[in-house]
């Protein structure tokens, strides 16, 4: 079973690396979102620094959900999903491994690059570090929630927009605590730890629940 999981992770990783729309495009999308905001707001450094963490979080949210609609759709299109359902790996684990690969290829580069982009939003060093930490902890929950949406819309042609409609409301708690944790560092009076721990809890909750929800949705699509 471990061998099957490793093989699935390797396959997803290779596909993400070889097909455009993996890490590089997500990163560029993230960069573009972050650079657009200062142009829209104007050169007010104090304001930028204040809303900087929120901007980074919104950009990470959109960039994470960008590729997630292909998570199961491509396997549905080429018939792989039919075989994955009866593979050695329970479907719940298939979902989990695919999410792990998707996060490693797509979201992890964003987390690593976020301090760099934070500089453009006039964040100070502490805020950069804490924002990156909150993104590292929070983005797995975003990927897992996106996976539920992707599984629900798998049998629909062009379900991308519907996926956003389904998944975005579910990401609100993650966004609230993520931004709260990130802005605690940039001049906020609130402490960092409580929202950060709540964010950890949300990710653990998504880790425990989302694979079952997504697998159930995939099975439902067969019947």
């Amino acid at each position: 079973m471990r061998k099957a999981a490793a093989a699935l992770f390797l396959r997803e990783w290779r596909i993400a690396r070889r097909i455009g729309g993996g890490a590089a495009v997500g990163l560029v999308f993230f960069l573009i979102l972050v650079t657009l905001i200062p142009f829209a707001i104007g050169p007010d450094l104090a304001l930028l620094a204040k809303i900087g963490p929120a901007i980074l979080w919104i950009a990470a949210l959109l960039a994470t959900l960008l590729g997630v609609d292909r998570l199961f759709q491509s396997d549905e299109d080429d018939g792989s999903l039919d075989l994955l359902i009866h593979g050695r790996l329970p479907l719940e684990l298939v979902v989990l491994v695919k999410c792990a690969a998707h996060w490693t290829a797509g979201a992890l580069p964003l987390v690593i690059a976020s301090p760099l982009f934070g500089l453009m939003l006039a964040l100070d060093a502490r805020a950069l570090a804490l924002t990156a930490a909150s993104l590292a902890v929070g983005t797995p929950a975003l990927t897992l929630i996106g996976a539920i949406g992707a599984a629900l819309t798998v049998s629909l042609r062009r379900g991308g927009l519907l996926l956003a409609v389904v998944a975005l409301p579910l990401t609100i708690p993650v966004l609230i605590f993520g931004v709260a944790a990130a802005s605690a560092a940039s001049g906020g009076a609130a402490p960092f730890a409580p929202p950060f721990l709540a964010l950890c809890a949300l990710t653990l909750l998504a880790l425990a629940g989302a694979p079952f929800a997504a697998a159930a949705a995939l099975r439902l699509a067969r019947s």
């Binding site: 396959r11 290779r14 596909i15 070889r18 097909i19 491509s74 299109d77 080429d78 018939g79 792989s80 039919d82 075989l83 359902i85 009866h86 593979g87 050695r88």
Partner: peptide, 17 residues
């Protein structure tokens, strides 16, 4: 299902690999 090979219309191959 886990004792069966299913070969459908689609080949279940990833074109990038």
């Amino acid at each position: 299902g886990e004792q069966a090979h299913y070969l459908g219309h689609a080949d279940a191959l990833k074109s990038a690999l």
